[in-house]
Design a protein around this nucleic acid. Structure first.
Lengths: 236, 236
DNA sequence: AGCGACTGTCATCAAACTGTCACCAAAATG
DNA sequence: CATTTTGGTGACAGTTTGATGACAGTCGCT
């Protein structure tokens, strides 16, 4: 999930556009509405990774949306950030008690809002905020020890995992077998150089197999007489 | 842990007393210091459940304390709320990026601060705020010490309960046996690593058995050579 | 003391993972 | 084109790792 999915519930069109622009630029996918009931529909359509919620919207009030989201098991863990007018302390307290994860006071600077959202995401879904490494259509969730290719989970053995991680941390770079033995197996490893080949094969097999016998493009490039590299560029 | 343990780092004596008074009244146990280095010592003495951190304190600056806490594995997950003077937006953004969980702008109302702290605790350590924790079809009622899977009550021994609770507080994350022994059994435990396996099995048996011999999907994932995690995502 | 629930450790079994080889295919080399 | 070099592949035996069932010790309660 390289692109966090944000739902923005805000009826001030100008503000909504500003916020949308900023988060789109940050790599978020943003859906927006100014109506509370519509917001609930959109949540059901697709579960957002985070909800920005204006306190005063038509249809359902912010507090009501918040409560409904928290009540349903499916949406209970979706982080919510409230947007409140300045000084409405009552509302803020009530909002936090209702289950909002954070609030931001208008007027806010876009930069601050972005930092806030990132902070909440980092906490709730580390994979969405830096604890994950991404390259092309590969995604590695470090804390969860999980790997996805084109959205599908990929099962890797420990060594293949470490190998892929090494590549992901230096994408595009070519590594010799010696170097890989050193950094993936450990400085004291006295394995055959060809052992690397075998694990490269295993990694390829695991990561290029798209489920039903399909073949995804090979993302590991063999550089003759030099080594291997992670590379999505097929021609070239 | 009915009584959350708070560390207050604030050098304005009057303010410190005010805050202490309020949180004590709310049932917190509050330790206080006005010096940054002393704060680090106090953290090491006993791990607080939450840190309130004035941005400007003697000894070590707030940002430095924050960074040091985040760096050490033992303290990386302790929630931190910064107290900043009004309008220092730069600092706030920087603070959030450094890893603070939230900030409150002076002057603040005690009531708001209490709500903020409660919100952060609810998020990071739901157990301390009395709420229930939910993940997939598992439900843990902290105050009632009860667990449900798919709506049905599940009987757990004390250790299995703590183990599951730890997983629920960090869903999706992989924990090594060492880490689990540390955080579920206690820092001073000198048990065999394999003890964890056994309790994982007991937890699995209890939680995957759907009553009449039915088998619910295993929600605990074994990650070879790494540890275990709570994970509902079977295919992907 | 007796009972029952809970714990920690072991020995054993099964499965997953690893490293090496021999052999084949492809690419360079002359 | 023949030869040499380099990488791909399938098989295999050894090793590591996790799952499991059994068992004895501990604790709290009656």
């Amino acid at each position: 999930m390289a692109q966090p999915d944000m739902l923005l519930v805000e009826d001030d069109a100008a503000l909504a556009e500003l916020v949308t622009w900023h988060f789109t630029r940050e790599g978020y996918s943003v859906r927006q509405t100014g109506n509370g009931e519509e917001a609930m529909v959109m949540v059901r359509e697709r579960l957002p990774d985070i909800v920005l919620l204006d306190w005063m919207v038509e249809g359902l009030s912010g507090i009501e949306i918040c409560r409904q989201l928290r009540r349903a098991a499916a949406t209970a863990n979706v982080p919510i950030i409230m947007l409140t007018a300045r000084g409405e302390e009552e509302d803020r307290v009530r909002g936090l008690q209702t289950g909002a994860d954070d609030y931001v006071t208008k007027p806010f600077s876009p930069r601050e809002l972005v930092a806030r959202v990132a902070a909440v995401l980092r906490r709730v879904r580390p994979a969405l905020a830096g604890a994950a490494i991404t390259y092309a259509d590969i995604e590695m969730d470090i804390v969860g020890h999980k790997v996805k290719r084109a959205g599908k989970n990929v099962a890797l053995g420990p060594t293949e995992y470490r190998l892929l991680r090494h590549f992901l941390e230096h994408p595009g770079r070519v590594f010799s077998r010696e170097h890989l033995l050193d950094s993936v197996w450990g400085h004291d490893s006295d394995n055959e150089l060809r052992t690397v080949d075998v694990h490269i094969r295993r990694l390829r097999k695991a990561i290029n197999d798209g489920g039903g016998g399909d073949e995804l493009p090979d993302i590991i490039r063999t550089v003759r007489s030099a080594g291997y590299s992670l590379d999505m560029d097929l021609a070239g």
